[in-house]
């Protein structure tokens, strides 16, 4: 038994198991669910979330209890920015590029507020969340911007050999680049060090504030990319496009094993949890289960995952593993 617990202790294994169970249950609920076409098709509903979740995870990983509550609002505002540029007559692709950079700028504002004005990220990004959404509403005056050329719809609606383009050409490449940056470069290791031991990081010569600011900027850039995908998917720039996505991104990060105090957790597990949440949502919809229950089931899943994790960790202690209680509960 010891070996099973040791394997299951890895978040990735547990999440894979959870994903398989979710798919199995969904297939029971609806016989049409389990087809390759379906399973690949619904990944499009997780693409934008995965972008925001990577940004969110990196912010949380960098420690000091950091969190980015403005990812949804940055997505909304960058999208509206794209819409406004397009309305002013700019080429849609140039406007998209500028919208991504604009997202980065919004993230930079967060980074500066948190690291150089020393406002706690919870408060700073709560503030900018309101600010960004208000500006987005003001710019559109409540009417969504539409009329994009149909070629622009390719990103959000197109398919390559049956796989949504926003997954193959956006979400997956972004994940690979991020994975390489975090796990194969010095800067990436520094993010983890920041999260585990802030002071040690400082003494080892890491420019703590600069790196943290860059991480917030990155979160903004990813929101900007998410905004372009959303605009292309809906063929509309809406001021409410990102509403609620900050909470979704936090949920997915935490379910994926990113520890809220920072420094622990793997981006790969976060991607798995994006898949779980996406399969769950689409599966429940396809099975025609009242969407009132969608959120409740997600809540139960989140709590169960953590309870399960805690049990595993306790078992491991019982079997003489060298896990401390600090690792529990996330």
């Amino acid at each position: 038994m010891k070996t099973i617990w040791a394997i299951a202790d890895k978040r990735g294994f547990m999440l894979t198991l959870l994903l398989i169970i979710t798919i199995a249950i969904m297939s029971f609920l609806n016989q049409d669910f389990l087809s390759i076409d379906n399973l690949v098709g619904i990944t499009q509903f997780g693409a934008v979330l995965s972008l925001l979740a990577i940004g969110q995870s990196l912010v949380i990983l960098s420690g000091r209890g950091a969190i980015d509550l403005s990812v949804g609002a940055m997505l909304s505002l960058s999208g509206v920015f794209l819409g406004v540029l397009f309305q002013a007559g700019m080429n849609i692709w140039v406007a998209s590029l500028l919208a991504i950079l604009f997202g980065g700028l919004l993230g930079l504002i967060n980074g500066v507020l948190v690291n150089f004005c020393h406002i706690h990220s919870l408060i700073a990004t709560l503030g900018t969340q309101y600010l960004f959404s208000s500006i987005a509403l003001y710019l559109t005056s409540g009417t969504p911007v539409s009329g994009f050329p149909s070629s622009f719809g390719v990103i959000g609606q197109g398919m390559i050999i049956g796989i949504p383009i926003q997954v193959v050409l956006v979400a997956v490449p972004v994940y690979i680049i991020m994975w390489f940056m975090v796990y194969r470069t010095r800067a990436g290791r520094e993010i983890y060090l920041l999260g585990t031991n802030d002071i040690a990081a400082k003494f080892s010569g890491i420019q703590v504030n600069k790196i943290r600011t860059l991480i917030f900027t990155l979160s903004g850039l990813l929101s900007g990319i998410g905004a372009v995908v959303t605009c292309s998917w809906l063929m509309t720039a809406r001021a409410d496009a990102g509403t609620g996505m900050e909470m979704e991104s936090i949920t997915v990060a935490v379910l994926g094993g990113i520890i809220v105090s920072g420094g622990k957790g793997h981006l790969g597990s976060v991607m798995l949890s994006v898949l779980i949440v996406t399969v769950l949502n689409s599966g429940l919809q396809i099975a025609n289960i009242d969407s009132v229950w969608e959120l409740a089931i997600l809540g139960i899943l989140l709590i169960l995952a953590i309870v399960f994790n805690n049990i595993l960790v306790t078992k491991k202690i019982a079997y003489g593993g060298n896990v401390t209680f600090k690792d529990k509960g996330e």
């Binding site: 949502n281 396809i286 969407s291």
Partner: peptide, 17 residues
């Protein structure tokens, strides 16, 4: 009331044929 949710639900219903 969300336009995105409507699109998503519609997609699910198309998948249900």
């Amino acid at each position: 009331a969300s336009a995105q949710k409507q699109v998503q639900i519609m997609d699910s219903l198309i998948r249900q044929k």
